[in-house]
Simulated assay, not measured.
Amino acid sequence: MHGSLKRILTGAGFLSLTLVIAVAGYRLSGWSLLDSIYMVVITVFGVGFGEMGPMTPQLRIFTMLVIIAGCTSVGYIFGGFFQMITEGEINQALGARRMTKEINTLTRHVIICGYGRIGQILARQMVEAKQPFVIIDNNLTRIETAEAMGFLVRLGNATDEGILESAGIERAKVLATVLPDDAANVFITLTARGLNPNLIILSRGEYPSTEKKLRQAGADHVVLPAEIGALRMSHIIRHPAALSFLEETVDGSSLNELLSQIDVQVDELAVVSGSPLIGSSISTVQVRGKGTFIVVALRRVDGTTLINPSHNVHLAEGDTVIVMGHKGDIPKFAHHYALKRQMRWRGDVVQGQS
Rank of each mutant, 00 (worst) to 15 (best):
K101C: 06
T145R: 05
L231K: 14
I85E: 05
S283N: 13
T305G: 00
A93P: 00
A338N: 08
I67Q: 11
G88D: 03
R204H: 10
I118K: 02
A184V: 01
T18K: 08
F78D: 04
M324S: 06
L33G: 01
I68T: 14
L175R: 03
H239T: 12
R60Q: 12
M324Q: 13
I8V: 14
L33M: 08
K173C: 03
S203L: 06
I262W: 05
G46R: 15
G11W: 03
F187T: 15
D348Q: 15
G3R: 13
F187G: 05
V313T: 13
G150A: 05
L155T: 04
T249A: 13
V296P: 02
H2C: 00
F62E: 04
R7E: 07
R215S: 11
A270E: 07
F133G: 03
T249G: 06
D251H: 11
D182F: 00
A241E: 09
H2N: 03
G75T: 15
L195C: 06
F293V: 07
L339V: 07
T304E: 12
S166N: 05
Q131C: 14
H314E: 15
I201T: 10
F78W: 06
P276Y: 07
S244E: 15
M1C: 10
I103C: 02
I188V: 12
H326Q: 15
V313K: 08
K6T: 12
D263E: 10
V296Q: 03
V178H: 01
E247K: 08
A226G: 11
Q83V: 00
T210D: 06
D329I: 01
E170K: 12
K340E: 09
L190V: 05
E206Q: 15
F187N: 11
H314Y: 14
Y337E: 11
S36D: 10
F49D: 11
I135P: 01
L33W: 12
G229T: 13
M233C: 09
R288Q: 14
R193G: 03
I67F: 11
G150Y: 00
Q351K: 09
N196L: 06
L28E: 10
P225V: 03
H239A: 09
H335N: 15
E102S: 13
I330R: 12
L195Q: 05
V178R: 01
D182G: 00
S354I: 14
I322W: 03
I237L: 15
V66D: 07
L106T: 09
Q216M: 12
Y115R: 02
V271K: 04
G194H: 10
G318Y: 11
K290E: 15
I136C: 01
A241P: 00
P57F: 02
G156Y: 02
N139I: 10
E268W: 05
N256I: 07
G291S: 06
R299T: 09
M84L: 14
G274K: 10
G229C: 10
T105M: 07
I200S: 05
T105Y: 03
M55L: 13
Q265E: 13
R204W: 04
N138D: 09
L202N: 04
I67C: 09
R142V: 00
Q92T: 01
E51A: 15
Q216T: 13
Q261C: 08
K332I: 14
G13N: 06
M99W: 00
M343K: 14
S16G: 13
V223N: 07
I77F: 07
